[in-house]
Amino acid sequence: MEENQLLEKFQEKVDAEIKVEPKDWMPEKYRKTLIRQISQHAHSEVVGMLPEANWLTRAPSLRRKMILLAKIQDEAGHGLYLYSAAETLGVDRQELVEELLSGKAKYSSIFNYPTLTWADIGAVGWLVDGAAIMNQVMLTRTSYGPYSRAMVRICKEESFHQRQGFEIVATLAKGTPEQKEMAQDALNRWWWPSLMMFGPRDDNSPNTAQSMKWKIKRKTNDELREEFIDRTVQQAEAIGLTVPDKDLKWNEERGHYDHGEINWDEFYNVIQGNGPCNQERMKARRDAYDNGRWVREAAKAYAAKRAAKAA
């Protein structure tokens, strides 16, 4: 079959909501887009462990510490499922990890922000996981089968993460004056970076149209961002915190909040490596990889010896 006929068939299948599976024909650009997107997502899970692990030894009660450790463990697990989903597209995890370490592959910029107080652990769950869920719920319906199925599993755990984060912030908001201040300060610092997680504005997002056509994405960046704002502003009000946007106003006609402009210079700066913790996060991942090399080699050598003995 000719390339354009295959392409046409592919589009018909996507339009008919039939999932694309690993062995099916797919346009090269579809495969590449998915590899990039799924691996970025996997890297984000893994790098995302770091800002939260930063507070593990300082968690203020045994219960909080257990919940946080369980949450970070889930993230490592999500990283694994996502690397596996990417591997169905004909790449291997090793390659993808090396792309992360060389700086060629990206991860979510939000993890380049520091967790400075315990309230930040709440804010990461509430806002960062809350923003991620908007995207991930959409992705449970993405056209690529393995990605969509990985997302169904991940979403179940993410909603627990978001709730525990909100619960931390809510507990602080009704605590002592210092605790409330800590909660408000965390919201002030994490609000705008969380909005940036949805990516550039639709009028400045060149890949969106193709991704929507192939049903990799089903909502635009601005649509998802708006859903997030509508939901989160109400949650903040419920616990007596103020969203740090003086232009935030309910728009009766649109049925959504209008909000102030995002600082896009900051957004591009952090992507380019100038965020507060870009270097630290990459160093931590590289060190883990380098220091773990002899461990992985030992495991391989031992397995080979065992296999040789068995043969």
């Binding site: 692990a53 510490k65 463990q73 490592a76 690397y83 883990a288 773990g292 992985r296």
Partner: peptide, 18 residues
């Protein structure tokens, strides 16, 4: 917990967290 996020492999991060 000091190992968390710094283990030699993702599988070990999961095992240590357990």
């Amino acid at each position: 917990t000091e190992w968390c996020g710094h283990g030699p492999e993702l599988e070990e991060d999961i095992a240590l967290s357990n």
